[in-house]
Design a protein around this nucleic acid. Structure first.
Lengths: 131, 131
DNA sequence: ATACATGTAACTATACATGTTACAGCTAAA
DNA sequence: TTTAGCTGTAACATGTATAGTTACATGTAT
């Protein structure tokens, strides 16, 4: 898989909406700021909507944050736009007949979870201090 | 975000070598444990060697850890096998003529770096407690 | 009605991980 | 020194996810 800019772009979109509540908030306009495509923007916005981070209505270019910006963390946004539950993917195709192949998954899963759990506390809020 | 099992497999390889110093350590043998291909194993081992985490010699199936296992962290391994300096990739194609498009990179980079810096302290050592 | 918006399906291009074949070159043992 | 088996690496195939794009059904508002 590729390195995705979805999180980066999603943060961009939310920040744009938070900062410009009275400007043109059409996907076309936001796409110009992100330097991307309106459909790409709407696709990301759709994911943010499903995660209850964003409110929007069909036909109306008036999206808004579903919560106060201080109550939206980057981790929330990450989970909204990335499918993987963690950053780190375990190879689950290892050989079950090998002592190491059979145990490495469990061991690494413990490590990954541990890392992830501590990590989750550290995520920043929306970068609205650029205001 | 990347969807690679390289880190997982690299940890597997290093653990295999650390645990089985007297067994058959050919790439073919390790590949059976990982349930992969000898070339894939050698490819990862080549990266570990370049990062000075692994010692190996052409023609000899006797790889060994370059350091005591307690001095090899999963973060070391991550950096050895993944090119990206961080987990999180910033969209650097945003519109420089838009106030937000031009600033979002700097702001997110600050956040990402902050997250990453705290994160780096938390990585586990090689999972040799499976012994 | 008309213009413009969202929501979403479908297709394409691209990038990267992984699998595989092939082979040059090294090692060790007969 | 011949031989078997190994490493190191290039080259190519394949699978999959991102991102860009076109198209269109549907909603909004004047």
């Amino acid at each position: 898989m590729k390195n995705s800019t979805k999180l980066s772009d999603a943060m961009h979109i939310l920040t744009y909406i938070a900062i410009n509540p009275n400007h043109d908030l059409s996907s076309t306009q936001i796409a110009q700021s992100v330097n991307s495509n309106p459909v790409v923007i709407r696709r990301i916005m759709s994911q943010l909507k499903k995660a209850n981070l964003l409110l929007s209505e069909n036909g109306k270019a008036t999206p808004s944050l579903a919560h106060d910006s201080h109550n939206i963390s980057m981790l929330d946004v990450y989970h909204a736009v990335e499918n993987e539950p963690t950053f780190l993917k375990i190879d689950d195709q290892t050989n079950p007949n090998c002592p190491i192949g059979s145990q490495i998954k469990t061991v690494l899963d413990t490590d990954y979870t541990s890392i992830q759990k501590r990590q989750n506390k550290k995520w920043q809020r929306l970068p609205l201090r650029m205001l």
